[in-house]
């Protein structure tokens, strides 16, 4: 994209919205680019921490894209990684302090995984691949889209794991008592870490069955 030419199109033109929409399905950071799995899956045993994590990541990724895109022409290429890390860490420290102040219990549950947003490969990947050569508005939208696409997968996984693992959603009982009386039992396996991996595998399977062009060649 050439940013020297003045922007004639509207802020929400189709071309501008492309980076916002794509990451939801055909260019999803988790299930297509396979990035940012590290800091996320451990928080999906319950829906609430997953929601908080998703919002935090959306915040960090969109604003770091915006800030990096604003200063992209003044950053020498040799030190760009450390500049990116500093921007991301400052935003993550902000998120961490806000979480500690307002939702202390969730912040305790997330423990080290808030700090690990810094090394979330999605964020560095977007700064490197998109924000470093696009204008601030597009970068912001791209960050927003990727953050949301990432959050979407987290929420799907957390929804399935909490519903079938403990029969609740956001702490409220969903599975009716009558079903338990009839012999239904919560699947304790869903709470354990391995099921997060297997669920992602299944999501990839379903997603690629509908999007044949994403299938690996070999």
């Amino acid at each position: 994209m050439d940013d020297n030419k003045p922007i004639k199109e509207s802020l929400f033109s189709k071309k501008n919205l492309k980076p916002l929409i794509d990451p939801f399905s055909t260019n999803n950071p988790v299930i297509v680019q396979i990035l940012g799995i590290c800091s996320a899956l451990a928080v999906t045993a319950k829906l609430k921490p997953a929601l908080v994590m998703a919002i935090s990541v959306i915040f960090v990724i969109s604003f770091s894209s915006l800030i990096y895109s604003l200063i992209r022409k003044t950053v020498p290429p040799t030190i760009r990684i450390i500049v990116q890390l500093v921007i991301i860490s400052v935003l993550v420290i902000l998120v961490d302090q806000i979480l500690k102040a307002f939702v202390y219990d969730v912040s305790k549950q997330l423990s080290v995984f808030v700090g690990l947003i810094i090394t979330n490969c999605t964020i560095m990947g977007r700064l490197e691949a998109f924000a470093s050569n696009n204008n601030p508005w597009n970068s912001f939208l791209d960050g927003l889209g990727n953050g949301a696409g990432y959050g979407l997968i987290l929420i799907i996984v957390a929804f399935v794991r909490e519903l079938f693992g403990s029969g609740t959603l956001l702490g409220y009982h969903i599975i009716p008592q009558a079903l338990y009386n009839a012999g239904y039992v919560d699947n304790g396996m869903m709470i354990l870490p391995p099921m997060a991996l297997i669920l992602i595998g299944v999501i990839i399977w379903v997603h690629r069955s509908f999007n044949k062009e994403l299938i690996d060649k070999n």
């Binding site: 354990l192 391995p194 991996l197 297997i198 595998g201 399977w205 997603h207 690629r208 299938i215 690996d216």
Partner: peptide, 23 residues
């Protein structure tokens, strides 16, 4: 392996099974 599962999909599922073994 079923075509849509090749690559990343099967790697996730195998990692999950290995994690169960490590438990």
């Amino acid at each position: 392996i079923p075509k849509p599962l090749r690559g990343a999909g099967i790697a996730f599922i195998i990692t999950g099974l290995m994690a169960i073994a490590f438990m």
